[in-house]
């Protein structure tokens, strides 16, 4: 579904991604774990066209999207749930969702998609006329996920959905991600909460200073000594 080949990108003169290669097959949950500043968010922003790649290739459903503008990539079915949720505070919940379907012009599809979201997140339905900024963190994260689902994506990229949320809410969000997978969605999940991410993922990549250092099945990564030491806090336990 998505394949990235020796991708390089960054901000100005700063090279953040130094040749990343990875791929995602349909129906998978793939997670990318790594420390702060490793380039996780930069990778997602480059795939979604917000940052331009300096070299390398991104292919989405056999279309080369490396030079596409962000809106065209969304239209193709590759949708990002940005880091820190980025809800539109001054728009109502309903408007936040509707703006997610900006690339869809058929109002019938938009309407049915809106109903799907309300079924998936009943909390949002209770608050359709409330301003986005007045929601709690967990609700905002649901709204952000709902908003990206409104574009009927084939691939959903989630950037640190657990940031700043209480453990109980995080559990909730991860259950939703599993549900999305069961509905046939493909998911790319970027997380600092490596343990939780690897538990629900099929495969995982470990990214360090802009390079993929490890890739394996998720349960294999969970058992991997290096990963345990670096990201899962095994040392600490001892």
């Amino acid at each position: 579904m998505l394949s990235v080949k020796s991708l390089e990108s960054g901000y100005g003169k700063l090279r953040v991604l130094k040749g990343i290669s990875m791929q995602i097959d349909p129906g998978e949950i793939v997670t990318i774990i790594g420390a702060n500043g490793a380039g996780k968010t930069t990778l997602l922003n480059t795939i979604s066209g917000i940052i331009k790649a300096t070299s390398g290739e991104i292919e989405f459903n056999r279309t080369k999207i490396s030079n596409f503008p962000a809106e065209k990539i969304v239209k193709l079915g590759c949708s990002l749930v940005p880091e820190g949720r980025q809800i539109f505070n001054t728009l109502t919940v309903k408007e936040n969702l509707l703006i997610g379907s900006h690339t869809i012009k058929n109002s019938q599809i938009v309407k049915s998609e809106l109903n799907n979201i309300y079924n998936l997140f009943p909390v949002l339905k209770d608050r359709i006329n409330q301003l986005g900024g007045t929601l709690s963190g967990g609700e905002q994260q649901m709204l952000a996920i709902g908003r990206s689902l409104m574009s009927k994506p084939k691939l959903i990229m989630l950037d640190e959905p657990s940031t700043g949320l209480a453990p109980l809410i995080i559990k909730n969000i991860f259950e939703i991600i599993i549900k999305l997978k069961e509905q046939g969605n493909t998911i790319l999940l970027v997380e600092q909460n490596a343990k939780a991410a690897l538990r629900i993922a099929d495969r995982g990549y470990v990214i360090e200073t802009g390079q993929i250092v490890l890739e394996d099945k998720a349960d294999a990564l969970l058992r991997n000594d290096e990963v345990q030491n670096a990201y899962l806090g095994k040392e600490y336990k001892k």
Binding site: S48, I50, P69, A70, E71, V74, K75, S79, L80, P82, Q86, I87, F88, N89, T90, L91, E95, L98, I99, G100, H102, T103, K105, R147, S148, S151
Partner: peptide, 23 residues
């Protein structure tokens, strides 16, 4: 309208607006 929503989303957060397909 749909265009108006896009405009208001720019006001709120240009980065997010871009990431959901608004130019």
């Amino acid at each position: 309208s749909r265009v108006g929503r896009a405009l208001r989303s720019l006001h709120g957060n240009e980065h997010a607006a871009n990431s959901i397909g608004v130019n």
